[in-house]
Design a protein around this nucleic acid. Structure first.
Lengths: 337, 337
DNA sequence: ATGAAAGCGCTAACAT
DNA sequence: ATGTTAGCGCTTTCAT
């Protein structure tokens, strides 16, 4: 807290109900009614009040209104990193749904730090947000759980909350492997990722192989960075050349691409490669990357809808989203060599 | 406005000053003081009040506080599209600076629609935001100008505002061309972009060529999309093969890359290529893209600092940021063929 | 050092 | 249909 709010006035120009009431020759209640429940005010009075309000540039202060109604019309959004395209897309989905509802989004970034997340949550709570959306919570089912009832989670690590949006990562893993099997590949290895989402995808990989009576093959753990994708793939190649690689994230897939190229292997001719996420760059790299799409924008939309439902008094519910394959150029039928 | 806020209570659990005061056997004023001006309260009383406040989980409602202080502790952020990595990075910079100042960011997206931008501005003003940051305003120097004094702009199209962060796009254009000239290239063509930023970059290209007594060469206008980069480059190639291409955005540069490859030209061996922005994918495509970096994160930081300065009573100021070249693999010395 | 009381801007219950 | 009044939760004089 290196900076303190000074006490100088800024919004001095803003007219208040009282001033409008005075100029219109009515009580403040009538002004309020003219704006909020126009049908409860005589045609003539309403017109006059509205005209004067407009003329004076009067806008009711949400501050005052919030205080008496007990609602801030603010929705908190807790997000690890607003700069990340995936999260950014979610935020966009949320924005788009909330647009025009009179609800505004208050942002808080956490950089995947559970300490900062708790702090951000406290800040938002102090602002009396009406509800909140937490993306990839790292604080987990913590002590704030109680305060959080009424909040929506897009966080694979927080399975205990009654309002959530969940991507079926397990199904995504199966989908990826199925796609590769359909192309004739048998030796399908995995560059895995950590956390619940990574484990779910890996489980999908494993189960799909098993269901097709294929042996499990190599699995190397990465951390969703490009470098980890490179290293994991180098490790894999040391144990032989697979038919196909399933990487748990697009960035790791690009890493795999580099390692394969460096080893003199061509994608998809020698090795097929599939990623996860459908990041922006997936369609820009060469070859373009086949991947399992994580519908970030839709996830954001669904989360915002859950918030709206909750505020509307509906029962909490959980939304499961199913990923789908985006076929591009990095996967191809197994070559007959 | 398809949805109306119901009247049910939500934040019922929150304790108020009065309850804390009662349990502590003091007046509400003392509770307030214990929290805000601890030095004005007796050691013993303060300890007791604070203990009880903690025990009751009391957090002062910003709603109430805002009303009396006349400040919302909210900063509006108007952004065309929060899903775009470039804008997302700016938002991250803003967040990082505001973190811990007690100020929160309220988000509003406009999708580059000046209508929506005005609406968003009105919403934020109703929320009595203490200040705001507008990124790439399309409403320009509109009627809201007055209300906007005290807001910070990151918008090349809004040169009349007293608090702004500006990237020197002109210098960026010169830098790009200079880099290519240093590598020995002479016939340097340009895939241009629209709007003020595009025109400034183009002017830089033109002037730098002129200063080096090089003829101007071909210029084709794109619209910052990949496709427009492809088409522009095809158009360019129809008029001969240049030494180097300067594209006004990385996405267009990737388009150029595709068109060049399709034409059987290798980058950078046959043609050097430089982009603008330093988007995430610039280091992921093959070859990795040399580009003029747009320091989005820094621009966000600077904008937030301007807000802080303004709120602190300092005079408005303008921050000029200078781009720099990020050298990667898409540019190389002119081959001796 | 503490309390009493006013009031920020607004809405809502009650009265007329 | 309109006015009067109370009060949302807090900070801040002004007294004491």
């Amino acid at each position: 807290m290196g900076w303190r709010m000074p006490k100088t006035d800024v919004n001095v120009g803003a007219a208040s109900v009282r001033q409008v009431a005075q100029r219109a020759g009515v009580s403040i209640a009538t002004v309020s009614r003219a704006l909020n429940t126009p049908e409860a005010v005589a045609e003539e009075t309403r017109a006059r009040v509205l005209a004067i309000a407009t003329e004076m540039g009067y806008k009711p202060s949400t501050l005052g209104r919030n205080l008496v109604t007990g609602r801030s019309h603010l929705i908190g959004l807790i997000i690890p990193n607003i700069g990340s395209p995936l999260y950014g897309d979610m935020a966009r989905g949320i924005e788009d749904v909330l647009q025009g509802t009179g609800l505004q989004v208050v942002l808080a970034s956490t950089r995947d730090d559970s300490e900062l997340e708790l702090q951000a949550t406290a800040d938002l709570l102090n602002h009396r947000v009406d509800s909140g959306i937490v993306i990839n919570s790292r604080a987990g089912d913590s002590s704030l759980l109680e305060a959080h009832s009424g909040w929506v989670y897009i966080s694979p690590e927080s399975p205990s909350f009654p309002m959530r949006v969940e991507l079926d990562n397990y199904a995504g893993g199966r989908l990826a492997v199925q796609h590769l099997i359909d192309l004739g590949h048998r030796n399908i290895v995995h560059v895995a990722g950590p956390l619940r989402e990574g484990k779910d995808r890996e489980r999908g990989w494993r189960d799909e192989l098993e269901d097709n009576s294929l042996s499990e093959g190599v699995r190397v753990l990465g951390d969703y960075t490009l470098e980890s994708g490179v290293h994991a793939t180098e490790e894999i190649l040391r144990q032989g050349t697979p038919d196909a690689i399933f990487a748990s994230g697009d960035l790791m897939a690009v890493g795999a691409l580099r390692a394969l190229r460096k080893a003199g292997l061509r994608v998809p001719k020698d090795v097929s490669l599939i990623g996860f996420d459908d990041a922006e760059f997936a369609s820009l790299v060469q070859p373009t990357l086949t991947t399992v799409q994580q519908p970030s924008y839709l996830m954001g939309k669904k989360a915002a809808e859950l918030v709206l439902n909750h505020l509307g008094g509906e029962e909490p519910s959980i939304v499961f989203l199913h990923p789908k394959i985006i076929e591009r150029d990095s996967t191809a039928p197994r070559s007959q060599s």
